[in-house]
Nucleic acid binder design. Structure first.
Lengths: 199, 199
DNA sequence: TCTATTTCGCTACTTGAGTTTCGAAATGGG
DNA sequence: CCCATTTCGAAACTCAAGTAGCGAAATAGA
């Protein structure tokens, strides 16, 4: 299983990703030009395309690199744990939202990544797998809280997490409303306490 | 306020939108080529660009035209009303999802529209306004249910609707999970009944 | 009828994504 | 050392979005 031919220059990967990240986060996704990245990195365009088959793939690789794996903490207080986790998700979204010097309600790079996942089957599969893994952690957290009696026994954990995470993405991608810790707290309160009048 | 020069041929708008819709929904967003639309419509490309400054603008116009304004019904049963409304939203999403002959979990055209809103300030503003209007209707529905005592007095209506609508968009755009009436019912139950153990 | 104004069709152009071709360089195996 | 294999760089290419310029056509108003 040892590769036969000339080995890849691994320094290229890192250099390109760094330059591409600078372009995306300083000047926006539209300013990410493959030709310019290649020139700044001092490599031929074909060398880039050998690693990332499209500009979308390169952008996904850039963002994936910067995505600190939001680890989940279980303190035994489900409300606090959920708020903290949502805040981490919101921080990641806000980082992409402000890429390119934006300040407004736009979804920014996050919107382009959604489109990238829709355009390319492999990117879609990859991101869905990553979200599934993240989802599993959150569902486990919820399940533990349910088992220890903090949450109701007949809980729909999947629906609960979709509601929480979904509301964040909805605001960033669709309505353009801000997402911050205060909003995360409102969300968790609303989801945990329900909306019906108490029987 | 009467326009001076040669009037626009209004038939062009309709013809172009119909042809573009056919291309998008039969062969996908990527197959929407301005040159091809212009040729099929029998007009010059410049005529198209006079009406829609970019391909994204044209695509938004196409989808906006097909978007049946989901009207909201208030039967006095907030649970049923919410489920019905969510089902309409889901139907619209599923229609865009399957555009281009897709069947899988991809966000399809919906993903491209999110990116379009992120790329163009005017499209973003427009879609946010439309969502704000829709949001207002849903919030009013919830508020009426709250006033008549169906929902708790200290309800966070905005958070509630974000949770419901957001979960649908989240599944379509991010996790790729299906959205149908059964899921809408799960969502509404989860949101209304809450997750805490009953005190 | 004459004029200002706007649309229209046409052609040519720029730009950036992605492809193709090819010769040179770097590696492991025989 | 030689050979198959793979990467690399360079150049030329295709394709589609979007732009620019121009003359002709259609309209309102004078």
């Amino acid at each position: 299983m040892v590769p036969r031919g000339r080995p890849r220059d691994t320094q290229v990967d890192e250099r390109v990703l760094r330059i591409a990240a600078a372009l995306i986060f300083e000047r926006g996704y539209a300013a990410l030009s493959i030709d310019e990245v290649a020139e700044q990195a001092g490599v031929a365009k074909t060398t880039l395309y050998r690693r990332w088959p499209t500009k979308d793939h390169l952008a996904v690789a850039v963002v994936a690199r910067l995505q600190a794996d939001d680890e989940i903490t279980d303190t035994g207080d489900i409300r606090a744990d959920l708020v903290n986790y949502l805040e981490k998700i919101a921080a990641g979204l806000n980082r992409m939202r402000t890429a390119g010097g934006r300040t407004g309600p736009s979804a920014g790079v996050a919107g382009e990544l959604v489109a990238a996942a829709a355009r390319h089957e492999d990117i879609g599969r990859l991101t869905r797998e990553q979200y599934a893994a993240r989802n599993a952690l959150a569902l486990a957290l919820i399940e533990r809280a349910r088992v220890r009696g903090e949450l109701r026994a007949d809980l729909d954990a999947e629906a609960l997490f979709d509601q929480l995470a979904g509301a964040l993405y909805y605001r960033v991608m669709i309505t353009g409303a801000p997402v911050d810790r205060a909003y995360a707290e409102r969300l968790v309160s609303s989801a945990l306490e329900g909306s019906l009048t108490c029987p």
